[in-house]
């Protein structure tokens, strides 16, 4: 009897948990669609151009090897962080004001071009969100520079300040 009650309680907890989790996920800004097709690739062995090949995680070395033509660097952090310093040539795209920046920045971007996304440090999450969001909008050549701006700065690379 005790065991049966324990199991029933557990089933109730899991059912409520699953129900609440999916409802919350459906309404939250940071909710994710579990069935979205995103494939992270650790290496750059294939040029990513075809639909569905995935977001590519790159490190600093790979970032510097990327060709400069038709490449866009997006800084997913906030305006204040961006003003304090960003990778030269990076365009501000604050993920948490997606609508505003989508209207402002996306018209400038060639969907066929390479898009590099980063934010302030390896621990910030806006770059991953922005990469996923853009990917689901049909920008398939996305590179995620996960180590972020702090890594760029630590290596003594040039930094640009202020709004462009």
């Amino acid at each position: 009897m005790r065991m049966r009650h324990t199991i029933i309680q557990m089933v109730v907890i899991w059912s409520i948990g699953i129900a609440v989790a999916f409802s919350y996920n459906a309404f939250s800004d940071k909710g994710i669609n579990p069935f979205i097709k995103i494939v992270y690739e650790e290496s750059m062995k294939t040029p990513v151009s075809e639909e569905g090949e995935g977001i590519v995680l790159i490190d600093l070395k790979q970032l510097r090897e990327l060709s400069r033509d038709n490449m866009y660097i997006l800084d997913a952090s906030t305006e204040d962080d961006y003003r304090e310093g960003h990778i030269p040539g990076a365009i501000l795209f604050d993920f948490y004001q997606f609508e505003t920046y989508a209207d402002r920045v996306l018209p400038l971007i060639d969907p066929e071009g390479d898009i590099i996304v980063y934010c302030s440090s390896p621990f910030c999450d806006s770059s991953s969100f922005l990469a996923t969001e853009l990917y689901s909008m049909g920008y398939f050549n996305i590179y995620l520079y996960k180590d972020g701006f702090s890594n760029w700065q630590d290596k003594g690379l040039p930094v640009e300040k202020g709004l462009q």
Binding site: T6, I7, Q9, M10, I13
Partner: peptide
């Protein structure tokens, strides 16, 4: 539901 939770 303490027991269900602790089992979980």
């Amino acid at each position: 539901f303490i027991r269900g939770a602790s089992f979980t």
